[in-house]
């Protein structure tokens, strides 16, 4: 029983993986030209920014929190980057670190308020969402194109792989983020403290873990990931706009949940989140291949998947807690 139990934590991610494989196979049978490596790679190319944001969200949700501000912070990052590059003409290597700093700073402040004043993360990050979106509109209400030569050149780079398949630099960046995050979660004390805090904050405190610092850290990480996601989105869009990434917090939360992470915290794998993002991306791909199915089916499917996974989680947790 216990040998099984020790592997149980991989089960949700496995389910998501099977779902992804099944969707891919079904798509391959149904549509011509679907079953190619490039289709999967395109899912990565088109969702690199979401992947990065979802990584940050995974940290937050693992502690039992939630971050509603991510979409707005993504938008704010594109806006700041675009404005600074097009207006005063700052170079990207100054702008990008600045944007990352601002995003992390916002996360830090939200984390601090959540921890120090014991206010629900939902409300604090809601305020953060309003703030970041409001700042976007204050900077400008129009879309700001990015014309910096270095930036656009980098954004349009294609990295060729074998057999005429290619990826964008953003995919590499996202992959690095995933790898680093997985390392942090599994191999560092911070990562284990994240799981412990989500499992039982009270116990974590009594076991001497720095719960407050951990909570502040995860919101900072989420802020950083959102800002980086914003940078990747500006590579993808080559513009900054206050209406970018509207509702992306929902996509990120959905990806994390579909990836098998418990919304109550304490259980989940980063690999699951990656698979969750892939499933979301593949749904869009299938709908575009289908042609007759309209884009809103994406939302309905995501909602359905959310429902199924949440009910499964509920059954799972009520059985294990007995």
């Amino acid at each position: 029983m216990s040998a099984l139990a020790s592997r149980q934590r991989y089960l949700p991610a496995l389910v998501t993986g099977c779902l992804f494989a099944a969707m891919f196979v079904a798509g391959g049978i149904r549509y011509e030209g679907f079953a190619s490596g490039q289709v999967i790679l395109n899912v990565f190319v088109d969702n690199a920014f979401l992947l990065v944001v979802a990584v940050g969200m995974t940290f937050v949700i693992l502690t039992g929190g939630i971050d509603l501000s991510v979409g707005s912070v993504v938008a704010l990052s594109t806006m700041i980057a675009a404005t600074l590059m097009s207006g005063p003409g700052w170079p990207p290597y100054v702008v990008i670190p600045l944007v990352l700093l601002i995003g992390s700073g916002l996360g830090l402040v939200m984390g601090y308020i959540i921890h120090a004043f014991d206010i629900q993360p939902f409300i604090v990050t809601l305020a953060g969402m309003f703030l970041a979106r409001g700042l976007c509109y204050t900077i400008g209400t129009e879309s700001v194109p990015i014309e910096d030569a270095t930036f656009t050149a980098f954004a349009q780079t294609r990295i060729d792989l074998f057999a005429e398949m290619w990826i964008s630099p953003s995919v590499i960046i996202a992959a690095v983020v995933v790898a680093v995050a997985a390392y942090v979660l599994h191999y560092t004390r911070l990562g284990r403290a994240v799981y412990a805090t989500g499992g039982s904050e009270q116990s974590a405190l009594l076991m001497g873990l720095p719960v407050g610092r951990t909570k502040i850290a995860v919101y900072t990480i989420s802020g950083f990931c959102s800002a980086l996601g914003g940078v990747l989105l500006s590579f993808y869009m080559l513009s900054g706009y206050g209406l970018h990434a509207v509702g992306m917090e929902l996509d990120a939360i959905a990806a994390v949940v579909i990836g098998g992470t418990l919304l109550t915290g304490g259980s989940g794998l980063l690999l699951g989140t990656v698979l969750g993002v892939l499933v979301l991306g593949l749904i869009q791909t299938i709908i575009s291949f289908e042609g007759t199915l309209s884009s809103w089916w994406t939302k309905i499917f995501i909602g359905l998947l959310l429902f199924v996974f949440i009910v499964l989680q509920r059954l799972f947790s009520s059985r294990s807690s007995r």
Binding site: L263, W296, K299, I300, F301, I302, G303, F307, I310
Partner: peptide
């Protein structure tokens, strides 16, 4: 969490 489901799917439903 429970109402998040309808928040996401509901938009799609409305467009449907």
């Amino acid at each position: 969490i429970a109402t998040l489901i309808l928040m996401v799917a509901g938009r799609g439903l409305a467009q449907l």
